[in-house]
Write a protein that binds this DNA or RNA. Structure first.
Lengths: 202, 202
DNA sequence: ACAAACCCTGACGCGTGCGTACGGGATAGG
DNA sequence: CCTATCCCGTACGCACGCGTCAGGGTTTGT
């Protein structure tokens, strides 16, 4: 496959709005264990989960639809209700996603985990995956570091260009007298010359 | 926008096959400058360009269609013919793409460049963009480094898990007696517990 | 003349990760 | 009862970066 890796600018943050949070009455007649022993006070609606994790409701639905997350239970009105561990889960998903894994790859890990015959085996498999990811991350860091250097180099180069005679046109850059011919230019600069692309619009 | 950045495994390489390369007769009657003074011997067909840059022909067409690249001229049979600078151009595109820029962002840079009134101005704008990109790359490196550490931590953690009693089931991990409760687990491990996802297929 | 490579334009397909809109209940407070 | 939020399920849309198929010329060698 080709090249895939984007850089972010910033993370979207959450704005807070208040509504209602699930109450014990939502879920269980007082005094009964709700389905699988989850303190009813700590149940989260999808919106709450969204806010706590910084994701959108839609995203969480999506995660569920691809099998990454399942609500602990439903209210009687079919509202999704999550236990506190869901927060960890979503953050985990996010992290792996940041690690460069697609949602379906993450799914694979979950499968692996859930279908593992024993704990040590599960841990072993997980270890293997993380090991692999570690290598990839290191490689990516190396690549980016190289690009970082190239950028520095190009910036240095461009610094002198800025002081060039203002009357010079870009067309003359390929025969620059200050820097020498275009062969000596950093690749990040050289690529701009010639090969004119179509022009249009403002 | 959400999170976007993938890691690669390896770069596709090129397999060589031989065909015909453009000849002077393709393009200009002997003794005439071909359109814009390009040594006819050095002209590349799209396939040649593809091979030299490691991209596919389709990709190059695509770059052209989004205005990143224009053939220097066409043969009389409408074959695209590129000058040697096209190679630099494609590599440049690839690099910026690796830098995390979309093709249309790259296009913007080209626009900037071509529409710049003077060379110093063009260089200045380019500098600004690269400056910005440098910051992003640095940030991304920082993020990845953090993730690298997390991975290391998780691997260490998992190392001990592998030696756990083979009869333990994953379900009991959340109450691990070796490591303590799940709150002390690395996030990359904690996220796996509970929140069971749907199971199906083999 | 014919075959073997190459090239052309056009257009639909795909995988990812959600955004967004639609029509309609659920829940809480006043 | 009315209303303000929040939620549900379904489904289409979109941006990216090409892959891939279709139908048909172009060059070149023998």
């Amino acid at each position: 496959m080709g090249n895939v890796h984007r850089l972010p600018l910033a993370r979207p943050s959450d704005s807070a709005h208040g509504a209602h949070t699930p109450q014990a009455s939502d879920v269980a007649p007082p005094g009964l264990t709700p389905a699988e022993s989850v303190p009813p006070e700590e149940l989260l609606q999808v919106g709450d989960l969204a806010r706590e994790t910084g994701k959108t409701v839609r995203a969480i639905h999506h995660y569920e639809s691809v099998g990454l997350l399942t609500p602990h239970m439903r209210s009687k009105g079919r509202y999704r209700l999550y236990g506190p561990d869901a927060v960890a889960r979503v953050r985990w998903i996010d992290k792996l996603h940041d690690l460069g894994m697609s949602l379906s790859e993450i799914q694979q890990i979950l499968r692996l985990w859930e279908q593992a015959p024993s704990a040590p085996s599960a841990m072993g498999q997980l270890r293997a995956v993380y090991h692999q990811k570690l290598a990839e991350v290191s490689a990516q860091i190396a690549r980016l570091t190289a690009l970082e250097h190239e950028l520095h180099g190009s910036l240095d180069y461009l610094d002198t260009c800025v002081e060039c005679s203002p009357s010079e046109l870009v067309a003359s850059c390929s025969a620059c007298t200050v820097h020498g011919p275009s062969e000596t230019q950093p690749e990040l600069v050289r690529g701009l010359h010639a090969c004119s692309a179509t022009s249009a619009s403002a």
